[in-house]
Amino acid sequence: MTRFLLVPGRGVPLANHWSRQWARCGFVWAPPPPGPPYVAADRVAALQAVVAASSESAVLVAHSAGCLTVAFWAEQHTGPVAGALLVTSPAPDDIPRRPLPFPAIMVVSRNDPHCGFDDGVRLAGDWGARVVDAGPVGHLDSTSGFGPWPDGEKLVATLAGGAVPPG
């Protein structure tokens, strides 16, 4: 069995955000969206608690600052992670830049207000993630028109090694 864990960004996603829709279909928050401020150590500890709670393989689905949480977690911990979908990560200077120890796909936007396209591609390369050019999709959130995101569901399925995501 594969677990599908949503790693939230800095804020609480709006009700129609694709991640909230996926949570209603059986994806599990790791941790639940706490809202600002973003404290990396707290988020990493909360993610570790969820990952370590089971020996079942997990696919991490991270949005925005949640991608940073995944990178910090991977630098400090190991666990049964089969892969990660990293969606529109910011690219600050003070984050881990080593390859992740599991397969990853990084979705990069052409017009993300939080990360330039070239910076996102460079970060994906640092993490060893395959880049998906999503085109001009903003931050791939509710504000930029993403409630449902069927292309994201397909990307999760490729990381799940044949396991079918809930929904």
Rank of each mutant, 00 (worst) to 15 (best):
residue 1 M to A: 15
residue 2 T to L: 12
residue 3 R to F: 06
residue 7 V to D: 08
residue 7 V to N: 08
residue 8 P to D: 10
residue 9 G to S: 03
residue 9 G to V: 03
residue 10 R to L: 14
residue 10 R to Y: 06
residue 11 G to P: 00
residue 11 G to S: 11
residue 13 P to K: 04
residue 13 P to V: 02
residue 14 L to H: 14
residue 14 L to P: 11
residue 15 A to F: 01
residue 16 N to D: 15
residue 17 H to E: 04
residue 17 H to S: 05
residue 18 W to M: 00
residue 23 A to V: 06
residue 24 R to C: 05
residue 28 V to R: 10
residue 29 W to I: 14
residue 29 W to C: 13
residue 30 A to H: 03
residue 30 A to W: 05
residue 32 P to V: 11
residue 32 P to H: 11
residue 35 G to K: 02
residue 35 G to Q: 04
residue 35 G to A: 04
residue 38 Y to T: 14
residue 38 Y to K: 09
residue 39 V to G: 01
residue 41 A to T: 15
residue 42 D to I: 08
residue 43 R to V: 11
residue 43 R to M: 15
residue 44 V to Y: 08
residue 48 Q to P: 07
residue 49 A to W: 07
residue 52 A to F: 02
residue 52 A to R: 10
residue 52 A to K: 08
residue 54 S to Y: 04
residue 55 S to T: 13
residue 55 S to M: 02
residue 57 S to V: 00
residue 57 S to T: 05
residue 57 S to R: 07
residue 58 A to D: 09
residue 58 A to F: 10
residue 59 V to H: 10
residue 61 V to D: 01
residue 66 G to K: 06
residue 66 G to M: 05
residue 68 L to R: 09
residue 69 T to F: 06
residue 70 V to Q: 10
residue 71 A to G: 13
residue 72 F to R: 10
residue 73 W to V: 14
residue 74 A to G: 08
residue 76 Q to E: 15
residue 76 Q to R: 15
residue 77 H to E: 10
residue 78 T to G: 10
residue 80 P to R: 13
residue 82 A to S: 15
residue 82 A to I: 12
residue 82 A to R: 15
residue 85 L to A: 06
residue 85 L to D: 00
residue 86 L to T: 09
residue 89 S to C: 12
residue 90 P to Q: 09
residue 90 P to R: 02
residue 90 P to E: 06
residue 90 P to D: 08
residue 92 P to K: 00
residue 92 P to W: 02
residue 92 P to Y: 00
residue 96 P to D: 06
residue 96 P to R: 05
residue 97 R to D: 13
residue 100 L to D: 07
residue 102 F to V: 04
residue 102 F to K: 04
residue 103 P to E: 10
residue 104 A to W: 10
residue 109 S to K: 01
residue 110 R to W: 07
residue 112 D to N: 05
residue 113 P to D: 09
residue 115 C to H: 05
residue 115 C to E: 12
residue 116 G to Y: 06
residue 117 F to H: 13
residue 117 F to N: 05
residue 118 D to I: 01
residue 118 D to S: 02
residue 123 L to F: 01
residue 123 L to Y: 03
residue 124 A to N: 02
residue 125 G to M: 10
residue 126 D to T: 11
residue 126 D to I: 07
residue 127 W to T: 07
residue 129 A to R: 03
residue 131 V to I: 08
residue 131 V to R: 02
residue 132 V to T: 12
residue 133 D to S: 06
residue 137 V to N: 04
residue 138 G to T: 08
residue 139 H to G: 04
residue 140 L to P: 00
residue 140 L to V: 15
residue 142 S to I: 04
residue 142 S to Y: 11
residue 142 S to G: 14
residue 144 S to Y: 01
residue 144 S to R: 01
residue 144 S to E: 03
residue 145 G to L: 07
residue 148 P to C: 12
residue 150 P to H: 11
residue 151 D to F: 03
residue 153 E to V: 15
residue 153 E to G: 11
residue 154 K to S: 15
residue 154 K to Q: 15
residue 156 V to H: 01
residue 157 A to I: 13
residue 158 T to D: 12
residue 158 T to R: 11
residue 160 A to S: 13
residue 160 A to V: 09
residue 162 G to C: 12
residue 162 G to A: 11
residue 163 A to H: 14
residue 163 A to G: 06
residue 164 V to G: 00
residue 164 V to F: 00
residue 166 P to D: 12
